[in-house]
Design a protein around this nucleic acid. Structure first.
Length: 453
RNA sequence: GGCCCUAUCGUCUAGCCUGGUCUAGGACACCACGCUUUCAAUGUGGGAACACGGGUUCGAAUCCCGUUGGGGCCA
């Protein structure tokens, strides 16, 4: 096959890569890969006033994180100025461009209609009288987007131009330019924009749009990529929503891309992130969560694993963390939420005595409940201190207390759980106690008892 | 203002090309119930949309025209 598919992602290095850019890159990547072609990165750095330091590095790093590996590039336009100059001279010689106040303009024919086919939108017609002669080479010697992107696409043999739909109205310019050079037109696919909650173009002002920020806030890269893929695309023959990159390569269809703009709905990303968090093993999660725990300084607190005293499993600091994280795994939407959810494992909880109250219990009843718990805990042998056994013993006791009325287990379990965690919501007391260990569990129950006047 | 793109639940969307199977399907979110000491996870159920007006047709979410709304580009 001589006509290999070649696509490109061509951002301007004016800031961090944002979600719209990530999606454009992703679609280009998917289309190239599913056709056995190449994906090329080009840096459009001809607008020197808007260049941002570190932007190119961030773009490349972000693509790498998401696994969107490019086969060629980065090709920098700033390193190809000679080439644009040559092409401009060619047009001047041919008489389709002319100098104008230090710049060079392309002569737009004003008659007739430009027609082209867009892979996503079908036939589009634009009257040529809507166009004006336009600058292709600026007085500073740099080309405009109009010229540069097209020369590059030609030179790198791009077969499919997949980009945002803000370029549709300029298509007559690009087509006229191709004709002037005598070049063949690539295929075009114009993507709908991603909009914010107010239906406006997603802007950096709104915050939360730099891909980097999402990672920073505890979203998993798989979730972000999956979510972004679904903004404007959906498999036509199934309701599947969770995709790996490999699956996307197989199932993505450029023709199925939506024509209307999509609003970025963070609630769905939150859900999807939870789905991906639940797919991880506790070990992987510990690794992923470590930066967030370190930021909260939770790992620095020297809390020994409770089973360390037991001997052979001592020093299992990471498995201590794994156990804790496994508890929160089904409850977690973002990794950044983790530290505040598990801090009671690392320091004594702070709470008011009122927290210990289940429904309409009196202080006396709470105290009795906690003393019952404490007695049970003290009576247990070290080897029996695991969640299965704890659950068995406590539920038996609860059954006796409430004369068989299972619904009132709360009288025993709520004060216990509150004493252990100091909070309204948490995992169950048995799992927590297993991790905390017998000694610490008893201490916390005692502290709770002392809080009651 | 001119031109271009676009229009199905609050949001992402299936269906539209090849009109009837659509009393419009799924997902997120929301609500209720089940499980449950709490919060989650999970299961079941519920409310929720074809922008509007004209055509064409026996029949339109689906085709055509217009209006309106939204967005983009240029000025």
């Amino acid at each position: 096959m001589s006509n290999k598919t070649r696509t490109r992602f061509a951002p301007s290095p004016t800031g961090f890569l944002h979600v719209g850019g990530l999606r454009t890159a992703l679609y280009n990547y998917l289309f190239a890969k599913q056709n056995g072609g190449q994906f090329i990165l080009r840096i459009e750095d001809t607008d020197r006033a808007r260049l941002a330091e570190g932007a190119e590095k961030n773009i490349i790093e972000t693509l790498r994180i998401f696994g969107l590996d490019f086969d060629e590039g980065p090709i920098r336009q700033s390193e190809r100025l000679e080439r644009y100059k040559e092409r401009t001279e060619e047009l001047v010689k041919k008489g389709t461009a002319y100098p104008d106040a230090g710049a060079v303009r392309f002569k737009m024919g004003k008659d007739g209609v430009t027609e082209f086919t867009d892979i996503i939108r079908g036939e589009i017609q634009i009257e040529n009288k809507t166009q004006e002669d336009f600058v292709i080479l600026k007085s500073d010697g740099y080309p405009t987007y109009n010229l540069a992107h097209l020369v590059d696409d030609h030179d790198t043999a791009i077969t499919h131009v997949i980009r945002g739909d803000e370029f549709i109205s300029s298509m007559p310019k690009y087509i006229a330019l191709h004709k002037a050079f005598g070049w063949e037109l690539p295929q075009y696919a114009h993507l709908p924009l991603i909009l914010d909650k107010n239906r406006a173009k997603l802007s950096k002002r709104e915050g939360e749009v730099a891909v980097y920020d999402f990672l920073d806030k505890g979203y998993l890269k798989e979730a972000v990529l999956n979510f972004v893929a679904l903004l404007g695309w959906h498999p036509s023959k199934s309701d599947k929503e969770l995709f790996t990159l490999e699956e996307l390569i197989k199932e993505f269809k450029l023709e199925d891309v939506q024509k209307a703009g999509a609003i970025f709905d963070i609630q769905k990303l939150d859900w999807m992130n939870g789905e991906y968090i639940r797919k991880k093993t506790p070990k992987e999660l510990v690794r992923l969560a470590m930066p967030f725990l370190e930021k909260a300084r939770l790992t620095l607190i020297p809390t020994p694993p409770p089973y360390e005293g037991g001997g052979e499993r001592g020093g299992g600091g990471s498995s201590f963390l794994e156990k804790i994280i496994a508890l929160e795994q089904p409850r977690l939407k973002k990794l950044s939420e983790l530290p505040e959810k598990i801090d009671y494992f690392f320091k004594e909880p702070e709470y008011d005595a009122g927290m210990l109250k289940w429904k309409k219990m009196t202080n006396n009843e709470i105290k009795k409940s906690l003393e019952t718990s404490k007695n049970i805990l003290e009576s247990l042998k070290d080897k029996d201190f695991n969640k299965e056994n704890l659950e068995k013993v406590f539920l038996e006791k609860a059954g006796n207390l409430s004369a068989g009325k299972a619904g009132d287990r709360g009288e025993l379990l709520w004060p216990l759980r509150a004493a252990l965690t100091g909070r309204k919501a948490s995992p169950g007391p048995f799992e927590i106690m297993e991790i905390l260990g017998q000694k610490k569990s008893i201490t916390r129950v005692q502290i709770a008892i002392d809080k009651i006047i």
